[in-house]
């Protein structure tokens, strides 16, 4: 009966907490996104000029960047916790973790570039 089950000695509490916090932030950002992109513009046509103006206001890149960070963290952390359930070997865990990290870094880079590009784009 006294079989010793492997404890990992790794707490999951921080990951769990951050996942929940990022979820709440995502929810708020999504609300904001829907309001500004869809509901405020309902029924009228949107011009290139207007879009550019919005993209180049001071709050827009901040909002987009927050969105990018939280979505990446939330999504990748979610995938990681699923993968961790089904990979018990340390090597495979390292492989998956590195892969997810790489994907995260690449997407962060591409996303940031896009935000900067939009902000600095000259009007025609």
């Amino acid at each position: 009966m006294d079989k010793n089950f492997k404890q990992t000695s790794r707490s999951g509490s921080l990951g769990w907490l951050l996942q929940r916090i990022s979820a709440v932030i995502l929810f708020i950002l999504l609300l904001f996104h829907f309001i500004t992109y869809h509901f405020l513009t309902t029924g009228r046509s949107v011009s290139y000029q207007q879009v550019l103006e919005r993209a180049q206001s001071w709050w827009f890149p901040l909002l987009q960047f927050a969105f990018l960070i939280t979505a990446l963290y939330h999504g990748l952390n979610g995938v990681w916790s699923v993968l961790e359930d089904y990979t018990s070997s340390k090597t495979w865990r390292l492989v998956w973790y590195s892969l997810l990290l790489t994907v995260g870094v690449v997407l962060l880079f591409v996303g940031t570039l896009t935000i900067i590009k939009l902000y600095t784009l000259k009007a025609v």
Binding site: K6, Q7, S9, R10, S11, G12, G15, W16, D85
Partner: peptide, 13 residues
Amino acid sequence: EIVNDKNGVWRCH
């Protein structure tokens, strides 16, 4: 302390 582990309560999704 015992349940605060990846094989404890955090394995529950």
